[in-house]
């Protein structure tokens, strides 16, 4: 899609969409939102970039290796935080009973593991949506055709 208006507007808008997505992820325990919604917003900014420029440029911005690393890393990050609860002498994914400091409610760094779990979910949802979009649209032919 080679249109000057769409390219100019999306070049202006994409950073703000990404910033808003990160805000929704990081403030998930203080305001409406969370990992799922914020990850979807971040992924939609990358999808907008790929649609308004071309698909090859979009898939070069976030290659297959990076997105698969984010995909597995989000799940492993979630599991590691859950196993830390066992390591500190409580249940899997324990928050307060594992001795995590809860902080003052209303501050950014409060809520114990909720902040970190939300970050992992956000990374995972974003990489899932981006990978699914570029796979279904056929934008990364060069990376996976040799196996």
């Amino acid at each position: 899609m080679d249109d000057l208006v769409i390219r100019s507007v999306s070049r202006l808008v994409v950073p703000f969409i990404q910033l808003y997505g990160l805000y929704v992820i990081f403030y998930g325990h203080l305001s409406p939102g969370g990992g799922f919604a914020g990850g979807a917003i971040v992924a939609s900014s990358m999808i907008l970039y790929g649609l308004s420029f071309n698909l090859e440029a979009g898939s070069r911005k976030l290659g297959h290796d990076v997105s698969s690393f984010m995909e597995s890393g989000g799940a492993i990050w979630y599991l590691i935080i859950g196993l830390l609860g066992i390591l500190f002498g409580s249940n899997f994914l324990a928050n307060r009973y594992a001795g995590v400091s809860l902080g003052t409610p209303g501050q950014l760094f409060s809520g114990g593991i909720i902040f970190f779990l939300s970050l992992g979910i956000g990374v995972k949802v974003a990489s899932t949506m981006i990978t699914l979009f570029y796979s279904l649209s056929g934008g990364e032919d060069s990376s996976g055709s040799n196996n």
Binding site: S31, L93, L102
Partner: peptide, 24 residues
């Protein structure tokens, strides 16, 4: 109990965190 003021986030990421692992 969780230190979060968003009750929905507290439910899906603290009380029901194992369920959210299933969603992931």
């Amino acid at each position: 109990e969780t230190g979060a003021i968003n009750v929905i986030s507290a439910i899906i990421l603290d009380y029901r965190a194992f369920d959210t692992l299933g969603e992931a």
